[in-house]
Amino acid sequence: MLTAILIMALGAVVLGAALGYASVKFKVEGNPLVEKIEAILPQTQCGQCGYPGCKPYAEAIANGEVDINLCPPGGMEGVRKLADLLGREVKPLEAEEKPKQLAIIDEQLCIGCTLCIQACPVDAIVGAAKQMHTVVSSLCTGCELCVKPCPVECIRMEPIGENIENWKWKYPVIEIKRVA
């Protein structure tokens, strides 16, 4: 009887120690769910979801604080992917979906105030105080954060149209013909 208890107790101690060691040794840094959610978000850092950047929004989703339909740049496809990942219901997007945009500074009007440079979350605007500013179009995420701070309203958003580089073959459509 006593030996049995001792053996069980010993087993418990050994296994407990092993588990304790493993939990320290193999500790996962950060929340892996947040990273997965963040990989789906479009990284425009626009704050349209009400959070300062994509990561805070991802954290909020992971904590179950907010809905998954607050990201307009991600579009319905983003919502669908998030729903897939989290096992939540697909909901229509809160705001309307916009095509991908690009900020353009009217260089004739720019007074060089640097306010847009400070607003840009991805450092896509170059310029200096009292010098003309311009947008590095390949880096612009189209977040619109630079539009509001501009005191002379010289920044406009233009949708990125279809060009040879981003053109896609269309989904084959089966023609339905009226028979009678």
């Binding site: 479009p42 979350p121 991805v122 450092d123 896509a124 880096l139």
Partner: peptide, 17 residues
């Protein structure tokens, strides 16, 4: 793939900023 690369680059720039 293009979108993903752009998103990754934007994220890196945002974090760096």
């Amino acid at each position: 793939e293009r979108d993903k690369n752009q998103a990754d680059a934007a994220k890196a720039r945002f974090e760096f900023r």
